[in-house]
Computed example of a mutant assay.
Amino acid sequence: MSTILKVEGLSKTYQSGSKSLQVLHDISFSIQAGESLAIVGPSGSGKTTLLGLAAGLDQSDAGNVEINQIKLNSLSEDDRAQVRNEHVGFIFQNFQLIPTLSALENVMVPLELRGDKGAESVAKNLLKQVGLAERIDHYPSQLSGGEQQRVAIARAFSNEPKILFADEPTGNLDEETGQKIEDLLFSLNREKGTALVLVTHDAELAQKTDHVIHLKGGKMMESSLKASIAS
């Protein structure tokens, strides 16, 4: 298997007036194609900051990030955006669908921005895979939370990403719906061979991944292999 994400010595400090707040301290880990990894820890431990840095949404003060063997730290913002467009998918807690577009159109947006031909056909197939073949013309306001997250998952897989980043993907869902979304996410991850990195407060969800990173106060307290119980 090839290494899809490699994080080495990652540190991040934010300035607040005259004060400095170091939110991440010397974080290192890697994940292979087809593997899954959970980032867990209390609120304020740096989980979302780490996710953003690993995905190339922000730059660290120290350390290096490689996605699919591309070093991000030396790239311009435009070049990092290009790497994200070509190699990365995102799923957020609040779905982030465009309210004025149908489910089909929401999935088609990144495909059309890339200039992909056959965007509608690809989007319809993805929505079928997530169980929404009969809901493609519905708008977000006409869909349940679980259905909106399914649309978001279909959109995340639209560029055939090498790695998927998910920030509390079941955080706004009830337990039963969240379980269905988890099953779908891991099923697609296996099927597509996509690396999966997720931030979660849900211990049971974290236990389903191959690796778990525990953060506290911006420091990595431990990293464990959970392949024997991975979904």
Rank of each mutant, 00 (worst) to 15 (best):
L5T: 03
K6P: 00
K6Y: 03
V7Y: 06
G9D: 14
G9M: 02
G9L: 01
G9Q: 14
K12A: 09
K12I: 10
K12Q: 12
Y14Q: 03
G17Y: 07
S18P: 00
K19W: 03
S20P: 00
L21N: 12
Q22T: 15
V23L: 02
V23T: 13
H25A: 00
S28L: 05
S28D: 03
F29I: 04
S30F: 09
S30V: 00
S30D: 14
I31F: 03
I31T: 08
A33W: 01
E35N: 02
E35P: 05
S36T: 14
L37E: 04
A38P: 09
A38M: 05
A38G: 08
I39V: 15
V40D: 06
G41Y: 09
P42R: 12
S43A: 07
S43E: 02
S43I: 01
S45T: 04
K47P: 01
K47S: 05
T48R: 09
T48V: 07
T49M: 10
T49C: 11
T49I: 11
L50I: 03
L50W: 02
G52D: 02
G52R: 10
L53Q: 06
L57M: 15
D58I: 07
Q59C: 12
Q59H: 07
Q59R: 14
S60H: 06
A62M: 08
A62I: 00
G63P: 09
G63R: 11
N64I: 02
V65K: 12
E66M: 05
E66I: 00
Q69P: 01
Q69V: 01
N73V: 06
S74Y: 00
D78C: 00
D78G: 01
D79Y: 01
D79C: 01
V83Q: 04
N85C: 10
E86I: 00
E86S: 09
E86T: 03
H87I: 00
F90C: 06
F90A: 09
I91E: 06
N94D: 14
F95M: 07
F95P: 07
L97R: 12
I98A: 10
T100Q: 14
T100M: 13
L101T: 02
A103Q: 04
A103S: 15
A103L: 04
L104S: 09
V107W: 08
M108P: 03
V109L: 15
L111A: 09
L111S: 11
E112L: 15
E112F: 01
L113T: 08
L113Y: 12
G115A: 04
G118N: 14
A119H: 11
E120C: 09
S121M: 13
V122D: 06
V122I: 15
V122G: 01
A123H: 07
L127H: 13
K128Q: 15
Q129M: 14
L132W: 12
A133F: 10
